[in-house]
Design a protein around this nucleic acid. Structure first.
Lengths: 215, 215
DNA sequence: CACAAACATGACTATTGATTCATGTTTGCA
DNA sequence: TGCAAACATGAATCAATAGTCATGTTTGTG
């Protein structure tokens, strides 16, 4: 279960690239659907259309593929989000666009998404790094927006960090609820509701001043 | 791996109660710390100070303990939250108190907390039910608060549901970040920052009217 | 063309650990 | 006290499957 740490499974050259990709792809589906424990190497390789042993040409262990998939998801999502967020006029707008893009991503890549979540219990390190990195980008973006006066400053010096994690939590939970479990509800409604709360919070708006009775 | 569905592992009578509890307790620690896959029945029973076979007097499978633990966590947390939330003057206050209590709970019961999160990949059903039930309570509470005018109405008819999941996501992510990964940062600061955003969102407050230059 | 990397195969090994079970031991109660 | 139900034991079973390896096959290149 813990094979020697062979240099690196970095084999790459011509057709091997494709084989590796096929395996990664099959692994994504298998692990995403059946879960890490259920997904056997034999299932994965069968699905990929290669022999069992071929797996070990490209990966040291089953955990290795998982790590790889988490990194892959990170890159894909980052790209997806950057693109979606490009035309944002301000931070609040970016939040809305980003959330929408995220939910969209989850609906389109449920397997990959699940793999990342499960990675937490297979290699806590990558999982944590995955989110920590996202949090960092988030922090930077929020701080910049704050400086620009687009969002209100927080009440203390942890608030930027806290806000970043809150926003990620929101995305993840909505992704789970509406991305994985219920892919029906229109994204617009969800995003409208979410953006409203992200923008203005729950507090009741001060009721409009009652117009003075006409004299 | 899939034993026949014997009636129920409901054995209960006198001392057995205690043994069952010891096993459940050990399982919580083992699964929480080492993860479901690593936690072996033998480790669990050893930790509990009973023989391997004893495990099967009270549980059909390893998955069974997990389910049991999720239910257990549900009860405990609910209790903890209800208590903490009791004196709340309004919904926003309840959110603050609830979040604080939750983070506190996670810091005090990291193992149990982790078990619940991992249950997602062992028995998706209980996990989903766990959160769906919490969401329901949340919805009810939010709807009531809205009626009382304590919080602003949402923009559409999914907003109460969406808000519930957002709030849960916030708790879970802050629980992970500040409960599990960094048990140092004072809860007060975290909760202040979070409550601010939950209450008022990110939007920049309308800048105070610039006082007219003195004539 | 010929040879060496690089890639691919799939049968085999070796471990692991969940679950079972035949055999005790304890407890409550008639 | 004596018996049956409940509880406890831990060695043995037994299936699953990661990971290995000896043996091909392909491909690029001199």
């Amino acid at each position: 279960m813990t094979p020697r740490k062979r240099t690196l499974p970095v084999p790459k050259t011509g057709r091997g690239e494709m084989t590796r990709r096929k395996i990664l792809d099959a692994a994504k589906r298998e692990i995403g659907r059946r879960g890490f424990a259920e997904a056997s190497i034999s299932t994965i390789t069968a699905e990929a259309g290669v022999a069992q042993g071929t797996f070990y040409i490209y990966f040291r262990t089953k955990e290795d593929v998982m790590r790889e998939l988490v990194l892959h998801m990170g890159r894909m999502l980052r790209h997806h989000l950057t693109e979606a967020t490009e035309g944002a006029r301000n931070r609040l707008d970016a939040e809305r666009l980003g959330l929408r893009a995220f939910l969209d991503f989850v609906r389109k890549n449920p397997d990959l998404y699940k793999v990342v979540e499960e990675s937490q219990f297979v290699d806590g390190k990558v999982y944590r790094q995955y989110y920590t990195e996202f949090a960092k980008s988030y922090r930077i973006a929020l701080a910049a927006a704050e400086k620009r006066g687009e969002i209100a400053p927080g009440p203390n010096d942890v608030s930027t960090e806290v806000r970043a994690w809150m926003l990620m939590g929101i995305s993840v939970f909505l992704g789970q609820r509406y991305g994985l479990w219920d892919p029906k509800t229109p994204l617009d409604e969800i995003v409208d509701a979410a953006a409203d709360m992200i923008g203005h919070g729950l507090a009741a708006t001060i009721p409009a001043r009652i117009p003075a009775p006409a004299p």
